[in-house]
């Protein structure tokens, strides 16, 4: 048991623990914070896997963007300190059962599947490789998804504005 494994198990426990707290706690603000911790845990997992870039993106976009957005919407729609209504028993039991069963089933299959051994090439994703691939117009380039995603972001922005817009009624002065 070397340090790598110990650190992995710690990170895994942390992720799962905060995740469970995020989905079971009664207070919404706390749920958001537990989510934040869970996402930070996932970023640390990426660091452990030598994926510094992804980890950085995770922290910047997810933790710094999405969780903040969620917190904003929590404040916009209700009092953050109150307790949320409890989930229905008729909901939790079948859900728990279904999830546990599905987890067991998937895990069983995964454990018994031979994924094949990796090639011995070193995994070395550094920044300029990523950057070159992102804007590469030739083979193996990701320029098309890059442009498409930017259009998608534009559409999403416009969509959000339209959906959330208050339609002003003609004021009868």
């Amino acid at each position: 048991m070397n340090a790598q494994e110990i650190i992995f198990y710690l990170i895994a426990a942390y992720i799962l623990g905060t995740g469970i707290m995020a989905v079971t706690t009664n207070r919404i603000f706390r749920a958001a914070i537990w989510l934040l911790f869970s996402l930070v845990g996932i970023a640390s997992l990426y660091f452990w896997m030598d994926l510094e870039f992804i980890a950085a993106i995770q922290i910047v976009v997810y933790v710094g963007g999405i969780v903040v957005l969620i917190i904003f919407s929590v404040f916009l729609t209700q009092k953050a300190g109150d307790e949320m209504p409890v989930a229905l028993k008729s909901r939790t039991l079948p859900a728990a059962f279904a999830s546990l069963f599905a987890l067991a089933f998937t895990a069983n299959i995964l454990l018994h599947h031979n994924f094949g051994s990796a090639s011995n090439v070193m995994f070395d994703p550094n920044m300029d490789k990523i950057g070159m691939a992102m804007l590469n117009t030739g083979d193996g380039g990701f320029i098309l998804p890059f442009e498409t995603v930017s259009m998608l972001l534009l559409a999403a922005m416009i969509g959000c504005i339209v959906i959330a817009m208050k339609i002003k009624k003609e004021a009868t002065q």
Partner: peptide, 18 residues
């Protein structure tokens, strides 16, 4: 599956989003 459980169980839409 933790996320799935949360999706089924939570009553608040924002927590479903989480």
């Amino acid at each position: 599956f933790i996320g799935v459980y949360g999706f089924f169980t939570r009553r608040n839409l924002i927590t479903i989003l989480m």
